[in-house]
Design a protein around this nucleic acid. Structure first.
Lengths: 478, 478
DNA sequence: GGGTATTTGTCCGTATGTATG
DNA sequence: TCATACATACGGACAAATACC
């Protein structure tokens, strides 16, 4: 047999790999039949004028991938490969497909969904992940706890306790892949056919999950303290089409999305009292965005005030770290934990154990705290920049929601319609977002002239530029 | 010689120094006698899962201090050290905490759920993950595509096409966190209140998901070709309590779990015909374990035979890579894609974008193919070891399911009850598992004397030991 | 037909280049 | 710049299989 392998002694690909690839191709294409013998490492080495270990390396690679078999003292032989899987190798070329294309042009996008991407702790994350992925960490590759790694839940518990005043044990925590999944799981635990009250406007993804689970959703208007509690009791709801009385209320007491309203203690107590009045009533506390406050003390979670096991707490690391980190968690009251174990306890966790362990280290080694502090100051700077830049707007707009979170609301005092505001901003190269999109039934939005401005993903320069464009668009005087 | 050197991959002291210190101590204390040979740099490197130059560095240090001597082509040998001068004595005393020992006891566990943990490609995974987590990859931290990264779906499509004969576009693929989540999502897409036929015995996690979604499940008995199709039509089902006629059938044609039955083409066509006969009928093809076959050609997926868009394909990387990698995927027929977009299209993906990109590179750079081939040969070796060790059992048991997958079934010919088999094995220090656990109603298991033996997570020595214990336990003659 | 030279896989120590922090 | 770790490449020693005289 005459093998002529083109070897490039200079190029980037190592010589043994060139031999390996050549052989693999020949075997694949059937030029080298099964059972036929390959030249010995020595013979081939001499033929190609390379060292024996070079040919040896190539053969070892083929061996480890099952293309050939070795018989000591006899030679290497081609395996029967018709059973070998062939994965399409579409090398480099397609890598570009991953890039996000920025289509916005040079528009300033006050998207309320963004977060500051420059501040993701790449190095820390990379380092931790490297340390997690070491060979002696085999246990990581077994099936994990359905509720999530116990150690991670412990550290989440500690964080929730000290930072948010949540009272729970690690056993009550369920780690899962993102808010929506967790709400789905929660629906399973609560059981089908529930009637659920939601603040209006609210976090629409949650609304859609509940609808997808067949829940009946009752939109509840908000006053300045948050959800109008009288409507929960059904007394004042005659105008609305819904029949059932709500059994569950979904609220964001710390910082309502999108209004930014903080629910005062009085209203919280009323809510808890409502939940306590009937068997089977529950409150779902979505502690969205609670990490970022700019004035006053952080408000402890509603869950911490609960003495009767009526509050389901849901939180996430998507906002505070990055949306790509699909890790959130539920804290269930004891009664529901039993339900969970019965109905959904067999569900494997949806979060990779590797990721759970990375997050665990991120939390316990103090990176999370440092990260939050850094982010808080980053966001505060942006927030202050935005607020001072909004001064001239205050004659025309009333600005709300400025104490926390990553966006503010501008309500036009003269009632200019939100579509008009959005369109004129768009025409001047700025994206702002109407409040309607947060209403359960956008057409029933009673506030027709409010827009939302998020600033998390904008640099200070961009914020200033955006505001100056808005001034032109909306004819604001300095 | 068995050297167990406690290595701390992330501590401050370099790994080569840890090896060096350990060796030095052993030599000093006389545990390693003069003239005795040390493991070769290669062998030790492999044993400790480090690079050879790491062990090399350690040996060079020992060499330069005279603790050992090197003989080319033979090895390193311990010097006679009574003549050695002690240079320095800096024993900090605080050796790194020993790894926690395996607490399993010495029972041999033929768990059918295990996979080979030693073969996870740690280095590749770590390297890819490192390359993904670079600062200029900011786009990774935005919200991703709800169906999963497009590029990843493309590469899954390519793999499914060439390896499994699945015909689809990347747009039909939905990536999600594990089988159970995907089945939940699928239930959402199919809508509530369906009646679903499942092979009996089957994959119980799937059964539990469907039940949790309020589906009515009809267990369908199996003949030697798989699901008994007459029962689907409702004609032969009088004995059973179910009322409704199945609209959906959940099957594992390539390698039924746990029976290992491969569905022949004829039965597949009948199934497809059944699905085609009425509007709204669908087949769910769970392509569990299809990667590992030991005899004959791999069987293409049922989905590839479907011309009417009746097959929903579900697959996962949990078996083939590691259960901790919580990534699986659905392939929906076009009609259901529309439903998906309408009902669940707003659900964010449950898999971290980072992980998706790691997997993407793992697929496109050919690592997956290499990994599968390597695993196949690892598993084949274990399989052959088990099968040859089972020869003496064949007088007492009939062995089935040996052509594929990671476990076999042993049916006692004289009808010894499975509890008895399991208990007696247990008493002899072996875990085997009764077939009952796979039945939808375990108490209705008609095969009362069959046990399941998985071998994926056992070394060949353990398999042999386990079998020899089983011989004693079950009184098998050689 | 039995000893011997050769071939072969396998193991070994060694040397150098390269990436990373 | 330097320590650390990994990748690549080289060639010698050996035992088992095999071909040859």
């Amino acid at each position: 047999m005459e093998l002529i392998i083109p070897l490039d002694g200079q190029g980037k690909t190592p010589m043994y790999e060139q031999i390996y690839r050549y052989m693999k191709k020949e075997i694949r294409q059937g030029n080298l039949k099964a059972k036929s013998r390959l030249p010995s490492t020595r013979a081939l080495a001499e033929h190609l004028k390379v060292s024996r270990s070079t040919t040896q390396l190539a053969y070892e690679q083929l061996l480890s991938e099952g293309y050939i078999e070795s018989v000591p003292c006899k030679g290497y032989f081609v395996s029967a490969i018709d059973e070998l899987v062939e994965v399409q190798e579409n090398f480099p070329g397609t890598f570009v497909a991953l890039e996000e294309k920025k289509v916005k042009g040079d528009a300033v996008d006050f998207s309320p969904r963004g977060i500051d991407l420059d501040s993701f702790p790449f190095n820390t994350w990379r380092k931790i992940s490297k340390n997690i992925l070491v060979d002696d960490n085999k246990a990581l590759f077994l099936n994990g706890d359905p509720q999530g790694e116990y150690a991670l839940r412990e550290s989440i518990r500690n964080y929730l306790h000290s930072a948010r005043g949540v009272r729970c044990s690690a056993d009550q925590i369920i780690v899962g892949a993102g808010n929506e999944y967790l709400l789905m799981l929660l629906s399973l635990v609560l059981g089908p056919g529930k009637v659920i009250a939601m603040e209006n406007p609210t976090y629409r993804q949650a609304y859609r999950v509940f609808v997808s689970q067949g829940y009946q959703v009752i939109p509840v208007d908000m006053d300045k303290s948050g959800m109008d509690i009288r409507m929960l009791e059904g007394r004042e709801r005659k105008g609305l089409s819904q029949a059932g009385e709500a059994q569950i209320a979904y609220v964001m007491p710390s910082h309502q999305h999108p209004t930014g309203i903080v629910m005062p203690v009085k209203r919280r107590q009323e809510l808890l009292a409502w939940a306590g009045r009937k068997e089977g009533r529950y409150l779902i506390e979505d502690d969205y965005d609670s990490e970022f406050r700019y004035k006053g003390k952080p408000i402890p979670a509603l869950q911490g005030m609960d003495r009767e096991g009526k509050v389901i707490y849901i939180g996430t690391f998507s906002q505070s770290i990055a949306p790509a980190i699909r890790i959130g968690f539920l804290v269930l009251p004891p009664a529901l934990m039993a339900e969970y174990k019965r109905k959904a306890g067999f569900f494997s966790s949806t979060v990779s154990r590797i990721d759970q362990n990375i997050l665990y280290k991120f939390l316990t080694e103090g990176h999370y705290e440092r990260h939050l502090n850094r982010m808080r100051s980053v966001y505060r700077a942006k927030h202050d920049c935005l607020m001072s830049g909004l001064k001239p707007f205050e004659a025309t707009f009333s600005v709300t929601g400025e104490y926390a979170g990553l966006h503010v609301l501008l309500a036009h005092k003269k009632g200019l319609r939100e579509e008009e505001l959005v369109d004129r901003a768009q025409a001047s190269g700025v994206c702002v977002y109407g409040l309607s999109r947060y209403f359960i039934h956008p057409e029933h939005n009673p506030y027709r002239s409010t827009v939302v401005l998020g600033y998390a993903n904008l640099a200070e320069g961009e914020i200033k530029e955006g505001l100056s464009r808005l001034k032109r668009a909306w004819e604001i005087q300095d």
